[in-house]
Write a protein that binds this DNA or RNA. Sequence first.
DNA 1: ATATTACTTAGGTATTGACCTAAGTATCGT
DNA 2: ACGATACTTAGGTCAATACCTAAGTAATAT
Lengths: 110, 110
Amino acid sequence: MVQPAVADQVFDALSNSTRRKVLEQLSAGPATVSELAAPFDMKLPSFVQHLSVLEESRLVKSKKRGRVRTYEIVPERFKVAENWLTARREEWEARLDRFDQYVKQLKEKE
Amino acid sequence: MVQPAVADQVFDALSNSTRRKVLEQLSAGPATVSELAAPFDMKLPSFVQHLSVLEESRLVKSKKRGRVRTYEIVPERFKVAENWLTARREEWEARLDRFDQYVKQLKEKE
DNA sequence: ATATTACTTAGGTATTGACCTAAGTATCGT
DNA sequence: ACGATACTTAGGTCAATACCTAAGTAATAT
């Protein structure tokens, strides 16, 4: 079971397209704030807010060395979202299977 | 490839915990507005807004018969989120594999 | 025919989210 | 030492979100 607060944070972080693009970049490997910000037409302080949201959700983590902050993906955290989606799929698939069984039985009775 | 606008809608719909709970209910089978609203301490017009967001994202669809509107899950739409997450996982796993190979090679050179 | 049910519509408020500018700090290169 | 770099902090605006109340419509039950 997923604690609700955690799923809230994770799905909230994923709900913004800028943040998802950052996660796409980071999936290719660690990167600094400037590197991550470069593709976006956005002022740095605005962009950095998105990085904060991502870090608070723990989908990413960062470390500062000198004046450079480097971000990287935290793979485990993605499971919160993956697990939630998988659980839903399993529920409705089980239900649809039961429905198929039911229809099959009806046909056999004819 | 996922069209960005679609992923925006889907992840946005998923970012709210009330809406995720509705999707959990609907995974167990179709339900009416009143049935879906019952567990929530929220006035109906507020709740119905969440249903609209879900329907606009096409994670669910609804049909009105008489005065009763019934909602159900649309399984395909969930793939937008699932695919996005899977794509990320594949990227970073490929990267980590390459890294493992690299480390292995280094050791062999000794 | 009328009351009840099951939403729906039309507003209004308060908080949050996503952006901005301006100015600050701490490191690094020369 | 000192300018450039790489963020960071401290504000401020505007639109969107998440809720609300009050009143409306249309279908069903009595």
